[in-house]
C-alpha cells in the first residue's frame, strides 16, 4: 500500500522545502550572472591575466603586438 500524506503538516513542510529550494536556486543564478557581469566589466581579460601573480611575458603589450603582427 502506497504511503499517503497523513497530516496537513506535510503540506506545510513541502511548501517550506520548495521555498528554500527555490531561494537557493535563485542564489546560484544570481552569483553566476553577477560573476559573468563582473568579468565582462573588466574589459580586456588579458589585463587581468598579465598580473596574475606570476610574470607572464608572453602577455606583455609588446609581445602581444609582435604576435599579432606576426600572424597577419
Amino acid at each position: 500500500m502506497a504511503i499517503k500524506v497523513e497530516h496537513e503538516l506535510h503540506k506545510r513542510r513541502l511548501d517550506r522545502n520548495v521555498g528554500v529550494g527555490l531561494l537557493l536556486a535563485s542564489f546560484v543564478v544570481i552569483v553566476l550572472v553577477l560573476t559573468v557581469v563582473k568579468v565582462q566589466g573588466l574589459g580586456d581579460i588579458r589585463e587581468m591575466e598579465r598580473f596574475d601573480h606570476v610574470a607572464r611575458p608572453a602577455l606583455e603589450e609588446a609581445a602581444t603586438r609582435a604576435q599579432e603582427e606576426g600572424t597577419e
Partner: peptide, 19 residues
Amino acid sequence: MTDVTQQTGTYEARMGDYF
C-alpha cells in the same frame, strides 16, 4: 507514536510565514 503526532504541538511555519 509517529513523528507527526509528536510534533503537532508546535506549529511548523509555511514559507509565507517567514516572508
